[in-house]
Design a protein around this nucleic acid. Sequence first.
DNA 1: CGCCTTTGACCAGCGC
DNA 2: GCGCTGGTCAAAGGCG
Length: 336
Amino acid sequence: MDGDKRPRDQRPHADPPPEFFFFGDDQDSSILSEFGWSLPEPASLASRSGELGSVGAGSAGTSAEPAETTTTAEVEGAGGGGPPAGGLEASTSNYPAVSSDSSEDPAEKSTGSGGNPPAETPSNKVRKKGQKRIRQPRFAFMTKSDVDHLEDGYRWRKYGQKAVKNSPFPRSYYRCTNSKCTVKKRVERSSEDPTVVITTYEGQHCHHSVGFPRGGSGVLTPNENATAFGPQLAPPLFPQLYHPPRVLNLNPSPREINSPPRPPNLPPRPLATSSGSDSQQLPPHSSEEFQAQQQLGRSNPPDLPTDEGLLGDMVPSGMRHRLDKRTLISWNSFQG
DNA sequence: CGCCTTTGACCAGCGC
DNA sequence: GCGCTGGTCAAAGGCG
């Protein structure tokens, strides 16, 4: 992709800019700060966005706590023109909202395993020349976990793994096992905080979740998925997170940054595919956490339309279609 | 046997 | 055109 000699995070970005919205707790706020996601200058933000894996080489993680805190980033994809330098501004204006541009995208790749008919897949495993890779909307989640592949209610087949620049950790590529589904996801561990797993979803599921853990109970309906990120947008919103993650403050005050780590009464909860049973053992929230979530408006008042659903739990409805740093700032301000 | 992971090779796309 | 990197393919092997 980039033959640029500059550090990847200093290059103009070819991919659509990422639009991040974050979830987690105060502790994760500091993590984001380390990622440079706490409202970096636009250029920096833009460069990081397209490639989460370039989040940067860096110091060791902040915490060894294997927890469930999750950060989410919307990484819109629509191949082709990258945003002009300046990133954030550009991203906001140049890229359509996920909800609108995702639903009508044709199956994305010529090599697609999923919805694309075999006829479109060259037998020699080579993409048709001139066929541009079309990116579907993407969402990235940052989750504190000691396991890489987080259970999300769908079944995935790993189809590749690559070492990524500026990261000691390889990036894994997964594809939804449903033959008609083109959803893919990338999983990588943050180079800055090895305890943080970055999961990027791309595409939309066109089928029911299998539930989680694999084959387990708790089948998600398409509607449930839809409520999370718009119509059947990929992430089923981490069903294991029955208590949706809290939204991170991207612009934490010093006080917030220095806030004490999460209390020990919040047990770490690895969200593992491999150890699926864990995902069912959802510990009861501490009243403290619950209250905090309530304050963040992540509860789902009964008077909200269904559409508010899980996403409503995580982000205000106003942010649903366009989430960018500024929005987050605004929201953070809104939260006080 | 079916499903999945691993892994090396290949290609696309980008900047120089 | 070259070099680099991300993304993908597909054969081979492992596992239940």
